[in-house]
Design a protein around this nucleic acid. Structure first.
Length: 573
DNA sequence: GAGTTTGAAACT
DNA sequence: CAGTTTCAAACTC
């Protein structure tokens, strides 16, 4: 009954390419650009910051499921909404919509990919479908029941690694996107090389989340490589043939008995055998089942127990952010302190300017008054005075108009009556009368008879001051983020080149090439087994780092991308 | 296209 | 939480 309907609903089953999670810091930097009205990044980097993530982060509540269909029209990523090789073009353009064929689930269980993806069935081949508007009540119940079982049921299963968001939107030579399946697969017989495997289907490598057996879906897997390489990349027949061969051991298994512990695990254990000593692993304890094997990744983890339980699954790949270990809690504190100081200075500067402007206005007014006739003074004295008083508190408006400060550029987005941008209001919420006001008051902003907030008649000065503080703080913060981005990119570049070298020496089981650059204990150089010497400076003091990030000029920044001789030192400074 | 295999989801 | 069943997609023939 009632199946395949709901045509009046928003576009459904938009088989969007699983959007690669944008570099979060880049997103934030762009948002700051919005607030500060500045273009933040060189075009090359801005271009690298591509699409916004989908609604992945939105927790779909039962009510939302029902009432906010337009939101859900942006299909949350589920493994089954992930591009599938034979249904999408290589560039991710949807080739056709997926249509379910449910017969017994009424399309009200997660078996149904339409339901699982949060969309109504439309044009499907399902039987007795309740996943439509006509059966919204039943559907809603099903959604609630599903959420009760699993609150994350409608969340994307494929998510970028918390330790490697940058990596997540890049592809390896094998075309794999470095994201992880949140739950991981549990494949036993497919070798994770068939579409039975959710990871494989999503075109991602198995990760430490997986509990698969005899996994061959890992980077470096000859079986997997055989599926994608050799000019057969899009030949599914070949791929499946190769997969079958791989699973049955016909490919790449010579020399490996392919025991329950897969080659991947073995290889990784060897490959990263050294890294277990890296102190950074202590911070990623739950990754100790895993192994970082993506060359560009800056850091690595590895199985804590090289002879770990076989059943834990062979595929444990984890990734870490390029910025991991760069940002420390102390850094954030320092950054906040710096921003507060900047804010205070901005307030001081602003109030000084404002005082001088007011003084000029006062002088002009006295001149005008002196030049007026006594009669006019008598006739209009009172009204003039009123006008002056009335305009007194808004004098800063005029002062601002002649101010050389470029705040007008930002002010374009900031209507006169608006105390602050919504984002800033949200950020500041309870703090508005403490930190910022304290910074401004000693220098006259609070001394103009306006001891209340900007909403009051004399609050225009405070508004301007806050706007200026906001602009400066956000600009500095944006610059800070941009430099972090640059650091990450530098690190990425270094790691990539290093990894290429490492790959060339992969026979060396201890070659990692992925070092934790901030966990060194004072050693300046860490020799790698392959002869590569990686500069590992001692941990920089947070203050140094923050000060550098905040105060470094753009010209300094431009020196960075060249991967200088002491790139690591620069990065750390 | 029918039958089989597979693994996630649901259930116990 | 583990084992079993149900289910629909993937796969084979």
């Amino acid at each position: 009954m009632g199946e395949s309907e709901g045509s009046e609903f928003p576009p459904k089953k938009q088989q969007q390419q699983p959007e690669n999670a944008d570099f979060p810091i880049k997103r934030l930097a762009r948002q700051l650009d919005f607030y500060t009205g500045c273009a933040s990044r060189p075009s090359s980097i801005a271009a690298a910051a591509t699409a916004e993530p989908q609604v992945a982060e939105i927790q779909v509540e039962p009510q939302q499921q029902q009432q906010q269909q337009p939101v859900r029209a942006v299909k949350p990523e589920s493994p089954k909404s992930i591009p599938i090789p034979n249904t999408e073009l290589k560039d991710g353009t949807p080739k056709k919509q997926r249509q379910c064929n449910c017969k017994h689930s009424r399309c009200l269980k997660l078996y149904c990919e339409c339901f699982a993806s949060g969309t109504y069935c439309d044009g499907c081949n399902c039987v007795n479908c309740y996943n439509n508007v006509e059966n919204e009540a039943a559907r809603r119940e099903a959604v609630e029941a599903t959420l009760e079982r699993n609150p994350n049921a409608f969340r994307p299963k494929i998510a970028s690694s918390p330790h490697g968001t940058r990596d997540s939107r890049e592809e390896t030579g094998d075309g794999l996107v470095f994201v992880k399946h949140n739950k991981g697969c549990h494949c036993k017989k497919s070798g994770c090389l068939k579409k039975y495997c959710e990871c494989f289907q999503a075109n991602i490598l198995c990760s430490e989340n997986c509990k698969c057996m005899d996994c061959k879906n890992f980077e470096g897997s000859e079986e997997r490589r055989a599926l994608f390489h050799g000019d057969h990349g899009n030949n599914m027949a070949y791929i499946q043939q190769a997969a079958n061969a791989a699973i049955t051991g016909a490919i790449g298994s010579s020399g490996y008995a392919s025991p329950p512990v897969s080659r991947k695990r073995k290889g990784q254990e060897l490959f990263f055998g050294q890294a277990v000593k890296d102190p950074s692993f202590d911070r990623i304890g739950h990754f100790q089942q895993g192994s970082h094997i993506k060359p560009p990744a800056p850091c690595s983890s590895l199985p804590s127990n090289p002879v770990g339980p076989i059943t834990l699954g062979p595929s444990k790949i984890t990734y870490r952010s390029l910025l991991a270990d760069i940002i420390q809690p102390q850094d954030l504190k320092e950054l906040c302190s710096v921003l507060v100081v900047l804010s205070g200075e901005a307030a001081k500067t602003f109030s000084d300017q404002r005082n001088s402007m007011e003084k000029q206005v006062e002088d002009q007014r006295e001149t005008l008054l002196a030049s007026s006739t006594e009669e006019r003074l008598q006739n209009h004295k009172e009204s003039d005075a009123d006008k002056i008083v009335a305009n007194d508190c808004s004098s800063t408006n005029h002062a601002d108009k002649v101010s050389p400060d470029d705040s007008s550029a930002d002010g374009a987005d900031m209507p006169k009556g608006r105390p602050m941008s919504p984002g800033t209001l949200e950020l500041m919420c309870d703090e508005q009368d403490t930190m910022f006001m304290a910074a401004a008051s000693p220098h006259g902003l609070m001394g103009q008879g306006c001891n209340t907030y900007s909403q009051l008649p004399c609050g225009q000065g405070m508004t301007e001051a806050h706007a200026e503080q906001e602009r400066i703080v956000l600009t500095k913060f944006r610059d800070c983020l941009n430099r972090l981005i640059t650091f990450g990119e530098i690190k990425e570049t270094k790691c990539s080149s290093l990894a290429r070298t490492e790959l060339g020496n992969q026979k060396d089981p201890l070659s990692n090439g992925i070092g934790n650059t901030r966990t060194g204990t004072g050693s300046q150089r860490r020799p790698f087994s392959n002869g590569v010497v990686k500069v590992v400076p001692p941990p920089a003091k947070p203050t140094q780092m923050v000060t550098s990030i905040v105060s470094t000029s753009d010209s300094d920044l431009q020196k960075i991308p060249g991967l200088p001789q002491n790139g690591d030192n620069k990065l750390k400074s």
